[in-house]
Amino acid sequence: MCRPGPGHRAPPLLEADGTTVLFGADTRRIPEFDEIAQRFPDIGLALMPINGLTSRPQGSRQEVMDAAQAAELTALLRPTLAVPIHYAPTSGAIGDRILVKLDRNHPKHYKDAVGDLAPDTGVHILPTGQVLTL
């Protein structure tokens, strides 16, 4: 079952076989996450974007959490396992120079920060093409 988060901007929660998965998509920290933490205290897996994407046409507005912000949110959500995602996107050579600014956070920075802020949450850095079985 796919259940929308508590607000229209909140990421979806997927539930199957007793496991709740939060798909962080490409988002920044929004107030709805606080409600998710309260309503879903047993998140099994959180997929957390960490690239820190900033849109130049939007006045250099940050669109996606960076590794440190995602780690802070992970500490709030307290999932059993967290996987950093969307940390190396590109919009091409020209697009990267003109449209977006990417803070290419290495997933190790996220793993280290989660270790400090949420030591009970495991972090799995999933290489491209590798399958994660829950």
Rank of each mutant, 00 (worst) to 15 (best):
A46G: 02
D96V: 06
A46D: 01
G7P: 11
A93L: 13
G92L: 11
P31I: 11
G5K: 01
Y87L: 02
L13Q: 06
E32Y: 04
A16H: 11
D103K: 07
T80C: 00
D103Y: 11
R104E: 12
A25N: 11
G129F: 08
E15A: 06
D66L: 06
L47K: 01
M1I: 01
M1S: 11
G122T: 08
P119S: 12
P79C: 01
A70L: 06
L132S: 12
L134S: 10
G95M: 10
T74A: 07
Q130P: 01
C2E: 14
A10G: 11
T121C: 11
Q130R: 09
A75R: 07
R29I: 03
D42I: 05
L14R: 02
R97L: 11
G92F: 12
L14E: 00
T133F: 14
H109E: 08
L76G: 08
S60H: 15
D34W: 11
F23K: 01
I94T: 10
P119T: 06
A75G: 09
E63T: 07
L76I: 14
D120H: 04
P57K: 14
G129D: 10
P31Q: 08
A70K: 04
R56A: 08
S91G: 13
P41T: 03
G95Q: 12
R3Y: 09
A67P: 01
G18A: 04
Q38W: 12
G122N: 09
A70F: 03
S60E: 15
G24K: 03
A118E: 04
H124F: 07
T74I: 03
V114I: 07
D116K: 06
L117M: 09
A16K: 07
A82I: 03
H109Q: 10
H8G: 15
P11I: 01
F40D: 02
E32A: 13
L117N: 05
L14C: 07
D96K: 08
N105T: 08
T133A: 14
A67Y: 03
S91R: 15
I85G: 09
